[in-house]
Amino acid sequence: MPAAIEVRDVHKRFGELQALSGIDLEIRQGEFFGLLGPNGAGKTTLISVLAGLARADRGSARVMGHDVRADYRAARRSLGVVPQELVFDPFFTVRETLRFQSGYFGVRDNGAWIEEVMRHLDLASKAEVNMRALSGGMKRRVLVAQALVHKPPVIVLDEPTAGVDVELRQALWQFIRRLNRDGHTIVLTTHYLEEAEALCERIAMLKQGRVVALDSTANLLKRVHHLFLRLRLSGELPGELRPLEHGSTAEAHILRLKGFEDVEQALACIRKAGCRIEEMELMQPDLEDAFVDVMQRS
């Protein structure tokens, strides 16, 4: 069984800027995969190479075993991409947009599936509305629907939830999860790390065009050894604890501790200073901590 996505030594530069410098990546069929990284890391560029929108200067990319250059027709048929930019064709209605997209992929008589996709994305009531008249979030939904019209085995979503309301976000993830259960491979980029943590089995982190971490979500979380202690105190935070302070909100301090042993010490310190603890919470590291860690270290 070929990998859903196989990227070998892909380099891409735009003028002086090296956007991708040697990406190697393999995503298995059926995976729910996260592609994370700060702005400008190269996520969209990598997706563009997979989709044939950009051409790698070096290296190769395959989708479901089909080379994106030599066998572009099969590769593109296997791939559905939700682009990051909010684009639309102002000449057409929602249904026309979806029918055309289906037709471009050579899928005729696709009405039933188009209706189903529209229903899942809550677009049915907008079917006859011109694209121009839709709100931003609605346009985003149409982009998602467009990527799904040809039932591609591999679905790539480039920040699909940017500017989308809570309701759709949940409906969208429910739908995408179902597609994943049905065997579709999902690749997701997002800056909402809770979303990635909840959804993705495996994650690659990109920085300046390189993969700086590639592991299962569980392993990435395990790599972070520290934990966080959130405290609300009756008085000032004792001076000895100041260096541990990781952040603070209006009423609480957050301390970054190396392990459970440190909790005892911190509490002893507070008692000695004559402070009263009004509220306390021990927090496990989340993907955001893992992300910050990886980005700082690499």
């Binding site: 027709r73 593109r76 682009p83 639309f88 471009y104 050579g106 467009q146 040809h150």
Partner: peptide, 17 residues
Amino acid sequence: QSKMTGNIIFVLLPPLA
């Protein structure tokens, strides 16, 4: 127009020769 608005990708993504 398609290039400027970006919707050219709708015809670049499909397997059109």
